[in-house]
């Protein structure tokens, strides 16, 4: 299963970025193989508008089934939900810790966006 985690840096030891659309990086992690790969989100960080939509497209394109992040707004949520990606908000600590929490079943998918639009600006 592929998981995308918003991250402040390109490592598993980096902290989870609380923002989704304007997160610095996404870490793509495969829970079957333990492979991980950083995806740069400078396009989202610098987007004039629609950073959440753009980031959601990236996560969908990368084939993630889960997104772990701090907060997720309505446009990003709608995009991810339509594509069948499960969104988990309120995640903190390091990226590695977030993956362990997901594995231990501690994390629950959100039923909707937890913040309004433009919250990560």
């Amino acid at each position: 299963m592929k998981v995308a985690i918003t991250s402040t840096g390109p490592e598993l030891a980096s902290r989870v970025d609380p923002r989704f659309g304007r997160a610095a990086w996404f870490i793509l992690f495969d829970t079957d193989t333990d492979d991980s790969r950083p995806v740069d989100n400078s396009e989202g960080v610098e987007a004039g508008s629609g950073a959440g939509v753009s980031a959601a497209e990236t996560v969908v394109r990368e084939g993630a089934e889960y997104l772990l992040t701090g907060h997720c707004g309505p446009n990003a949520f709608r995009t991810l939900e339509t594509a069948g990606v499960k969104v988990i908000v309120g995640v903190d600590g390091t990226v590695g810790e977030a993956i362990e929490k997901l594995r231990s079943g501690e994390l629950q998918a959100a039923g909707g966006p937890d913040v309004g639009p433009h919250s990560g600006v």
Binding site: S49, G50, V53, V60, N75, T79, T82, P117
Partner: peptide
């Protein structure tokens, strides 16, 4: 269309495009 949109108002998914009219 998603590539052409300067405002990220369109999301291209596998089987359809989502439009965000307020963007």
């Amino acid at each position: 269309c998603c590539e052409a949109c300067r405002y990220n108002a369109l999301a291209c998914l596998k089987d359809r495009v989502l439009a965000f009219h307020e963007l």
